[in-house]
Design a protein around this nucleic acid. Structure first.
Lengths: 343, 343
DNA sequence: TGTTAGCACTCTATGAGTTCGAGTGCTAAG
DNA sequence: CTTAGCACTCGAACTCATAGAGTGCTAACA
């Protein structure tokens, strides 16, 4: 159990280290506001905090730095939220000032602003497009052997794929196919699309279209190919600004992991509600053991959910980021819901 | 003027430095195949090459490294092309093995493979979409106040923008508008689209559609907003692998410049035909003064042109990259033309 | 009993002094 | 013209000494 004074010293130590990136000594601490004891007393308390595992030394006679447990205690119990500064709000709101009407664009820009504001890297995950509902399907022939399939969803998202068609295909057959598809598939989610395509439309197509096989096969294949997810990064290079990352090898691993889309589920606790903080080795990936990740979710309407994450050094400014993400999450939910539900 | 022997020594020196990243001394050179003179003779020649500005020393008693002029002479006169290894070809061709039918996807994947093969950063510039020809326009209403405009081009590229419409708009009016737009604008290049939109369709719309003003204004605006260009990167992180770049500050500047789209014209000599090499300060950007950039153009059909660039340290493996880019350029031109012109 | 002053001790960072080796330029002989 | 030889230069790596920040412990104090 920690005494009042120990809590204070722990908080001030973490705060100072977050700010300076230097080990904190007992002398420095005496100069901090709120601390009245002498350096000797502080030393005793620091030794106690260390023995309980909240602080560490880099070498025998150095000052203290927070341990993983120390950071954890700090964010769990010592974090006093501070309001988001007006100028940050102004900058964040600027996304909605311009007449940007596409979810993706809004998310992308928000990622940029967040990284600029924080000097850390931001990762924004858009809502799962597979939950979007098909609004319209069309097929546009390009050349005798090629056509492009277009799917418009209720959110205004447009998926398109080029696929090959029999060179001597009758244009009216394509038209028929589009009609059948639209008749059967509007209102279906992208998630269900593939299954429904096969179950409901295949038989119908067989009846009405002469060479449905060739056409259908490549069309289906085109829709099958997975596409890049809706992950947006801001300030990937900000990692290079942090003095904590000096080892180029480490930087590369870290950037590599973030760049490669497949690690996203390990970086972000998808599905988690509210604000999450993962410190150092609490992260699933070894490359991120020197990082902390703060995530919040946001909603569009009642169901669709995206995530916002800030990746920084363990020594990141938790207080500021937590407040900021809290604000952004609420703001984004509100604005996107408004946009999405047609005001 | 340089003697035969001086040319040989220059070539071997540059080759060695490219390979080892270490200053090259006279003793090392005597061990190289083709060199028969003693180290003393080599020293004399090195001194001569230095006085003529082809080589430099890092300090008074160090070995020599190539100067900018030295590299330039090397690539202009001493570069003997070597054939692209079979395994590189196999890997490059793999893009076309899978049934990828979209120009963008092909270019993107090629960028990835190129960077993997070379360990440098690749930048691929797709053909200018503004030259694409409108194949079909459509407008899909999403909600009472929103719609998405879709433009399909002859290359299978799909542009789409969400824009706002009057909430009580008559659906038949939208249909009318789409008809008018298609009637007038199919066959027009994206480049001309905006002008033609105003010149040819505005009057017509005014005649036939009741509330053309509100609808047209936001539609026009949506098409006006510039979109991300078709620039694809491969291996941006490869810079971190090069021992030449150890200064994090420099790395950041460099990545910053590359990341930000607006510097593309300065990085790539757009419009230039054939293979171009820019060494060190020959690059327009200060951040790239330690880099070399090798570019080739490729064609689709007769007119449309894209560029492929490899960015590496000045000490890059010019011989290998030149051959590789030469091959890729030809291959990409051939395959894309085939695809584009419908076989 | 908790707090503090004092002090010996530890460890890092810094800078000066050495040595080693790779490399050079120059000279004189072949 | 080429080459062996040699004095010289400079960076890299190592040692050593010092300064400074910080610690832990002890003993005195309130």
């Amino acid at each position: 159990m920690l005494t009042e004074r120990q809590l204070l010293i722990l908080k001030v130590t973490v705060d100072d280290y977050i700010q300076s990136a230097q080990p904190v000594g007992s002398n420095q601490l005496t100069k901090k506001p709120g601390i009245t004891s002498s350096s000797a007393t502080i030393r005793n308390e620091l030794a106690e905090l260390e023995s309980q595992g909240y602080l560490e030394k880099t070498h025998t006679s150095s000052g203290r730095i927070p341990s993983q447990k120390g950071y954890r205690y700090y964010v769990d119990h010592l974090l006093t939220p501070n309001p988001v500064p007006q100028q940050d709000i102004v900058q964040l709101r600027s996304v909605f000032e311009e007449k940007v009407t596409e979810t993706e664009e809004i998310i992308k820009r928000s990622a940029g602003i967040l990284s600029e504001l924080t000097n850390y890297t931001s990762i924004l995950l858009g809502p799962d497009i597979r939950k979007h509902i098909v609004k319209k399907l069309s097929i546009v022939p390009l050349s005798p052997g090629m056509a492009v399939a277009i799917i418009v969803t209720d959110s205004g998202h447009v998926e398109n794929r080029v696929f090959s068609i029999p060179a001597d295909m009758d244009p009216s057959d394509i038209e028929k196919m589009v009609n059948i598809l639209n008749e059967r598939l509007i209102g279906v989610s992208l998630y269900d699309l593939h299954r429904r395509l096969e179950q409901e439309t295949l038989a119908l197509l067989r009846q009405h279209i002469e060479r449905y096989g060739e056409l259908f096969r490549t069309f289906q294949q085109a829709l099958l190919l997975p596409r890049a997810d809706n992950v947006y990064y801001g300030g990937k290079l900000n990692i290079l600004k942090q003095p904590d990352f000096h080892d180029i090898q480490k930087i590369r691993e870290l950037m590599d992991v973030m760049e490669e889309g497949k690690h996203i589920p390990e970086i972000l606790p998808i599905g988690a509600q509210g604000l999450q903080i993962r410190i150092g080795s609490e992260n699933a990936l070894a490359a991120m053991e020197d990082c902390s990740v703060i995530t919040v979710s946001y909603d569009i309407g009642d169901e669709q959910v995206g995530s916002i994450a800030i990746v920084g050094p363990k020594r990141m400014d938790y207080r500021r980021i937590v407040s900021l993400l809290d604000y952004v999450s609420g703001d984004l939910s509100k604005e996107l819901t408004r946009l999405f539900q047609g005001k």
